[in-house]
């Protein structure tokens, strides 16, 4: 059972995160980024390719609903030794996608910033996701950029915000000409 792989340090009341496993190829629409169809064969190719190393530069985790073990999204984490870019994808047609994404952020941001000690943890949030925006700000993330009309929605376009969590333990001295 893949639920045995629930990361105890990334578990909450609403969602938990775990490593992706080969059986997840049957649910790739939920965790694979982008709107295009991904069949099981393609998903297996992606899973095998992304897990060639035990310490990859990109980690891809499943976001799973705590009650029922349904995969509701994916968290793709690119990082080097000091910088990480977090890309959260939620399954299509979820009525509570914003709440689930916010719950995932509440687990992922403290882990990456405070335990992994990333200097900067960055993520993008659409302007029509108020619960996730509130969660990011409660977590101490700063809105560092706004891309105007970046995303298409039925009937119009919306902005995309970039949020960054800066780790205060990195004692960064600002250049004098900044």
């Amino acid at each position: 059972m893949s639920s045995r792989l629930r990361a105890t340090f990334l578990s909450g009341d609403t969602v938990y995160l775990r490593a992706l496993v080969l059986e997840d190829k049957e649910h790739a629409i939920a965790w694979h980024p982008g709107p295009f169809p991904v069949n099981a064969a393609k998903a297996e190719e992606v899973l095998r390719d992304e897990h060639k190393s035990l310490s990859p530069r990109v980690q891809h985790l499943a976001i799973v609903r705590t009650h029922g073990d349904e995969i509701v999204g994916g968290a793709r984490i690119w990082s080097d030794e000091r910088w990480t870019d977090l890309n959260v994808t939620m399954a299509p047609a979820l009525p509570d996608a914003d709440e689930l994404q916010a719950a995932a952020l509440r687990l992922l941001i403290p882990w990456l910033r405070d335990e992994v000690e990333m200097m900067v943890t960055a993520t993008s949030i659409a302007s029509d996701q108020p619960v996730s925006i509130a969660a990011a700000e409660q977590l101490g993330m700063e809105r560092t950029a706004t891309l105007r009309q970046w995303l298409a929605r039925p009937g119009g376009r919306i902005d995309q915000y970039r949020y960054e969590a800066l780790n205060p333990d990195w004692r960064i001295e600002e250049p004098t000409d900044a």
């Binding site: 560092t144 950029a145 009309q149 250049p175």
Partner: peptide, 23 residues
């Protein structure tokens, strides 16, 4: 459009990257 913090090093200081957009 904003900036992203501490992306690259110059002369021992972390420097930001600026973000722009155009419609």
């Amino acid at each position: 459009a904003g900036r992203t913090k501490w992306t690259e090093v110059q002369h021992g200081y972390y420097r930001d990257t600026l973000l722009f957009d155009v419609l």
